[in-house]
Structure formats: structure tokens, C-alpha cells
Design a protein around this nucleic acid. Structure first.
Lengths: 114, 114
DNA sequence: TTGTGGTTTCAAAAAGATTTGAAATGGTGA
DNA sequence: TCACCATTTCAAATCTTTTTGAAACCACAA
């Protein structure tokens, strides 16, 4: 009574066994970095913010109106997007204008097909 | 004393104002669907599972050994990946062999650059 | 049947993320 | 200086996700 199905075992051995496959998995650092991005995009509100900013840079005041949420809530979600390096804010006069980073832009394009 | 910075206001008006931009944001349905995928990939353990399965189909028993986690924990994470339609399980003899779906495969490729 | 191996379910506990409203910050103009 | 506006921070409350270990399930063989 085998403990592993045969065809899988064979294919697995041809890759150097379990260790061989584990070695092909991206590093923890890579994975943690992507996690940060995925957690940022996991919240619908934050996807909306990113997609709105891809259309055009916006100040917090317009985003707030657009999404109908409180200042502190918006600030919280913006900070998560900033930490994931998907957007950046630039001070202009009295306002902070947000826009996607290069990374934010390209990820926004890629995820259209998800 | 204006309430919105001028250049932003102009660009915004040229897109049909706030409503115009809101109309360009993907639908709630789209966004929620992507959220499911992002939540699934937000957890490092689940990224590892997906990347391992992209290398080769594996039974739960090998995944368990590879990741050094309990049965119920593995089962929980597999169910989240299945719900997001990133992987599927196929019964073969006594085992269930997991592998990425078509969608799981193509997303795994795309996110390498994230 | 009875047992066994592989997997899933369950409920409770623990950990983590989000929301809330109030208070703080920081720059700007009166 | 003072007041004001946009934005951020904070701590508490709430909500969601993950972990845990035990029990259940299911197909199959003895």
C-alpha cells in the first residue's frame, strides 16, 4: 500500500524530489513582497482608488467625494496602497495629488484579465 | 480659496466630472471577483502552494510534507485556492491530485513580475 | 462488517484587518 | 499670532481570516 501515487512520485523524483521542487518555489522575500501587493488589492475600495487614479491623478478631496467615505478611512486605504508602492502622493499647493506609481500602473493593466 | 486644485479640476471636467471617472472604474462585480483572487494570493502559504503546483501536480500528502503543515491547515488553504478557481483537485485512486487551473497557471505567470 | 488512510468539516481561540470618531499635525493666509 | 483647511494619527470597537485539534466522512481492502 503505497503512500504516494506512482506517476507523481516519478515526476517528483525527476525534479530532485521534494527538495528539488521546493527549490523552484520563489524565495520567501519574493513571496512576502507580492503578498503586500495582493493584500493591498484584496480590498474592493483600494482597487477602486487605483483604477480611478489610473484614469487621472486626483486629490484626496475628490477621491473622498467619489468614494463617499470619511477622511480617516480614505487616509487608511491610501496608506496601504502607498506601502505597497502602487500609488504615490505629491504635494501641490494645499493638496496632495495622488497618482499610480510605474509599478501601480503596470499592475493595474495586468490585472484587467484576472 | 478653491476647494479643488485647478489643473485636476479641468482634467476631471474633460472626462465628464466625477461621474465620468466613476463610470470608467470597473464594475463592482469585476472588482469583487478580482478580490477573491487577490485574497487567495495574499497569504504566503497559498502562493507557495500555487507555485509548487505549477512545477508539477501534487497530492495533498506531498504538499503537506513540503510545507510542513497540518492536514486541516492544508485543506483550508487548498479550499481558498479552489474557491478562487486557481487550482483544482482530481481524484486518482486513494489520492486527490491538485494542479493549477488554466486561470491559475496564467495568473502564476503574470505575477512573477509583480 | 470493520478498519484504515486520506481528506474535510467543525467550533472555539487567536491573530489580523478595517472602521469609527476624536484629536493632532502642518502649512497658509488673515 | 491665530484660525483654518487638508490630511494623518490614534485607540477602541468591530469584523474577517487563520489556526488548532478533535471529530466526521468516504472509498476501499481485509
Amino acid at each position: 500500500m503505497p503512500e504516494i501515487p506512482d506517476p507523481i512520485k516519478e515526476q517528483c523524483l525527476s525534479k530532485g524530489g521534494i527538495e528539488g521542487i521546493v527549490a523552484l518555489i520563489p524565495s520567501d522575500q519574493d513571496i512576502d513582497h507580492r503578498s503586500l501587493v495582493f493584500r493591498a488589492l484584496a480590498e474592493p475600495m483600494r482597487q477602486k482608488i487605483l483604477f480611478a487614479l489610473v484614469e487621472q491623478p486626483l486629490c484626496a478631496c475628490l477621491l473622498k467625494e467619489m468614494l463617499a467615505i470619511s477622511d480617516s478611512k480614505l487616509s487608511y486605504h491610501l496608506s496601504i496602497l502607498k506601502d505597497a508602492e502602487l500609488i504615490k502622493g505629491k504635494k501641490e499647493g494645499s493638496w496632495i495629488i495622488y497618482q499610480p506609481t510605474k509599478k501601480g500602473n503596470s499592475i493595474a493593466m495586468l490585472i484587467q484579465d484576472f
